[in-house]
Design a protein around this nucleic acid. Structure first.
Lengths: 343, 343
DNA sequence: ACGCCATTATTAAACGCTTAAGAGGGCGAC
DNA sequence: GTCGCCCTCTTAAGCGTTTAATAATGGCGT
């Protein structure tokens, strides 16, 4: 290509055309006082005409703001494909960020070690002003690092003691309880749960709430199996639950991939859904209406979650030290995978 | 927060500690000649010790390289959720980019107009060195803009006349033909197709190949319905095809979401799959093995596709004017949704 | 001993922007 | 008439790098 890159206009060019100094141009373009209305208009018009945009690097270097935020997703790549959460969440983030002229730097890594490395690097290079932290673990190695480096961040999950980082969260416990209440109201007495990664905090929260809810209805200690969210483990856990004696008449799952897996296992074992087994999925993606029977699921607005997350992060970056924000609790979208248990 | 940001080390600090000029430090850190082995080691050691990383903004400003590339995804947000392509593709991009110290700037917008706006802006701001262009349309408004601004880019799709941009592509035509050949070999004579967005180039390519293949087997003009890839349109198209007289005994779909929809429609209409109807899905995501019967699908390595795309883009950015690259053709992963037609 | 060259190091300009500090002019108050 | 003030604009330093140009050093051939 050996080509001369197209030269992009600078404020110096605007200054020359307007016959003023670059200082004046800068003030005018940033809407600061010190420039007469007439000159300001002249400058803005010229800028508009030649299509000037501030050079991000120069602005960062001078103003010490990168005007972008980072999102490091720490998951094995193949798990990401079917997981509908992130794309919707990212769409939400974007929606808010683009209005603020802030870019989103995305990184996909395998594990927390790599995530920490990635965070350290892009912070050290000053590529980002802050970070979005998802998939929080109960004991999360990333948090000390964020604290050490004093990186502005927002936690996608419950607020935490021991850090002053704001969190954006939804009441997982209430949602888990709502699912149990509904199943009990239908007449179920043996309800089990297939949970996600035990290391994840919201897994713990949901499991605890689930246990409390079941106990609260006087139903004894429920069975809870832990998994890594994958299809394979969903299959395994469901088989285990359905193979024992006193098999549950209802199972709640921590995501919709595993709930779908359950559908297949039930079919395989000749167990009717919802006739003999009710299934509740943990996320409500399109997947839930793509299978037969359509899955009853805990439904919430992931994109809005992304919007709020971005907003809180930007507040934090701007030094407005926002509090944590609770978004709407998931509601149960009842479809065809739940019914009264067999008499 | 009003807090003093943690000061990150600069080459000036290294220079001071090493007792040399910042110029020497820069040469040493960039592995250029003009520094003695001894001094070089001293400098590198100090840099390592204090954890120095180049300030990305300063480097960009000086070197006129942003060290990041952009990906603008132009799709309605709700379509993105279930579409497994992007996450895997992005994981592939990342895999290659992170090794090259290059960041990925992600943007999610609604349509091409917004995409062009986003591209223009982040190019004008010099935030990126190049762009990845996906979902190419037959007549794509983004291409003239890329040409006008001389933005280094890589096309994710067929190479094109009228532009010198390199492309990374897979032989969609061959894959479409393979699917038809397989169905014909099974004994099918009435094969239909539910295609994706007609505006997309690969839709056209696949449809044309499909028609040719069917004609080549002497089977007359096949029915082809166009859709927007969504579940809803998959349902609609499938109903239409199965409701007419002389209904097809096999249908190929342009993605797996619609193929899954077809499964439901068939069940609804009491048509056995694969007994009375064979179904071939266009992408092979985990979705295909999540439904019953598991879907026969065209399978290919999307993550590798991402890796190659990033590699070609970086070559282009580095001025090595790479040619277009063809990656492995999709192969048919035969599962349980295809069989011989009813006698 | 001298000039010449290669090697190693320094200097300073440049990248495009922000911003504190200063300069000039007009105007009202005394 | 003069002082002081406000408003508008300019100057110049600084952000952290890269890099061309320059300077200092030492070794070698003659």
């Amino acid at each position: 290509m050996g080509d001369d890159a197209v030269k992009r206009p600078t404020i110096a060019e605007i200054a020359a055309r307007a016959g003023v100094s670059i200082g004046a141009v800068s003030y005018a373009l940033n809407g600061r006082p010190g420039v007469s209305a007439k000159t300001r208009k002249l400058i803005l018009d010229i800028a508009d005409e030649i299509g000037w945009r501030p050079n991000a690097a120069a602005r960062s270097l001078s103003g010490s703001r990168a005007h972008s935020v980072g999102l490091v997703i720490a998951r094995p790549a193949d798990t990401l494909g079917v997981e509908p959460f992130f794309m919707r969440f990212i769409a939400g983030l974007e929606r808010e960020l683009s209005g603020r002229r802030t870019a989103l730097l995305l990184q996909v890594v395998e594990d927390h070690r790599a995530a920490i490395e990635a965070m350290r690097l892009c912070w050290a290079e000053r590529r980002v002003d802050g970070m979005v932290v998802t998939d929080l673990w109960t004991d999360d190695a990333r948090l000390p690092v964020l604290a050490e480096l004093r990186i502005p961040a927002v936690l996608v999950g419950r607020p935490r003691a021991g850090t002053d980082l704001p969190a954006v969260w939804t009441d997982d416990a209430a949602a888990a309880v709502a699912a149990v209440d509904y199943l009990v109201a239908l007449g179920h007495r043996r309800i089990a749960r297939v949970a996600g990664l035990p290391a994840l905090e919201h897994t713990q929260v949901r499991v605890a709430a689930f246990r409390r809810a079941v106990a609260g209805h006087g139903l004894g200690e429920p069975r809870v199996l832990e998994t890594d969210y994958t299809w394979e483990e969903g299959v395994r856990a469901t088989r285990t639950l359905l193979s024992g004696r006193d098999r549950p008449t209802a199972i709640t799952y921590d995501n919709d991939v595993m709930a779908t897996a359950a559908l297949n296992v039930a079919q395989e074992m000749g167990i009717a859904v919802p006739g003999e087994l009710s299934i509740v999925a943990g996320d409500d993606s399109q997947l839930c209406v793509m299978v037969r029977p359509a899955l009853t699921a805990l439904s919430w607005d992931i994109q809005a979650y992304g919007v709020h997350t971005a907003r809180v992060l930007m507040d934090r970056i701007d030094g407005r030290s926002p509090g944590s924000l609770q978004v709407a609790t998931a509601t149960l979208a009842v479809r065809s995978s739940t019914a009264a248990p067999p008499a």
